[in-house]
């Protein structure tokens, strides 16, 4: 118990030197958020990166502090939905999905139907919404594909929907059409491998 307390005090006392890029007031406030996150066993690297992003972009201190506080809260919500064993990358992706409009229930459901890691599935959900797909449609599509689709399949699905939207298709309709085509492919056993950011197209018979 004493050892744990000493360890905790030591960790809190040591401030990340990268935060030196912030002004004194902002640095103190961000360090307090980081310490709170550490005590709550939340990942601190995303919080530090958000603060550094704000510093590099020249954002005012109060805006940086508000951003990192909101991120810490959202990380807590994401962990409540995904469980304590969730990876840092999964939590970050879950935050993006939450901010895109997915509910914690959707994220928890995704955890139940798909093998971890859930990073790509959650990211695809967030990116679909960013492309204009309604949040409920994006969530329904990802949940439908999640049990069988591989990460690369999900990325290809997202890119296909984005292409259709760019060509003028309504986002919701594009999602439905691609979901049906993707469901046929997944159930047929075809899979795609490779770089998820540049997936090769699936061969069709």
């Amino acid at each position: 118990m004493i050892l744990a307390a000493l360890l905790l005090v030591t960790q809190v006392a040591v401030q990340d030197p990268r935060l030196d890029r912030l002004d004194l007031d902002t640095r103190s406030a961000v360090a307090a958020v980081v310490d709170s996150a550490r005590v709550a066993r939340l990942p601190i690297e995303p919080i530090i990166q958000r603060a550094l992003e704000g510093a590099t972009k020249g954002a005012p201190g109060p805006r940086i502090v508000a951003a990192v506080r909101k991120l810490a809260v959202d990380l807590g919500t994401a962990r409540a939905a995904l469980g304590t064993s969730a990876l840092e990358a999964e939590l970050e992706a879950a935050v993006a999905a939450l901010r895109a409009g997915a509910t914690p229930e959707v994220i928890a459901h995704l955890r139940d139907v798909r093998r971890p890691p859930l990073t790509m599935a959650l990211s695809v959900l967030a990116d679909l919404v960013a492309s204009g797909v309604p949040a409920d449609s994006a969530a329904a599509a990802v949940l439908a594909l999640a049990p069988k689709a591989r990460d690369a399949d999900l990325v290809e699905f997202r890119r296909a929907v984005e292409r259709d939207i760019a060509l003028g298709a309504p986002p919701g309709a594009a999602t439905s059409v691609r979901l049906n085509a993707g469901a046929l492919d997944v159930s047929g056993g075809n899979t795609t491998t490779g770089n998820p950011n540049n997936p090769t197209r699936r061969s069709r018979p």
Binding site: M120, D127, A152, P196, N197
Partner: peptide
């Protein structure tokens, strides 16, 4: 060529990239 970051709190555009792990 990448999805836009929807939660841009600092007033400048950003993008996101997701690197997959197992199963990708």
């Amino acid at each position: 060529n990448a999805p836009a970051a929807k939660d841009d709190e600092f007033g400048t555009p950003s993008s996101v990239i997701t690197v997959g792990g197992r199963g990708s």
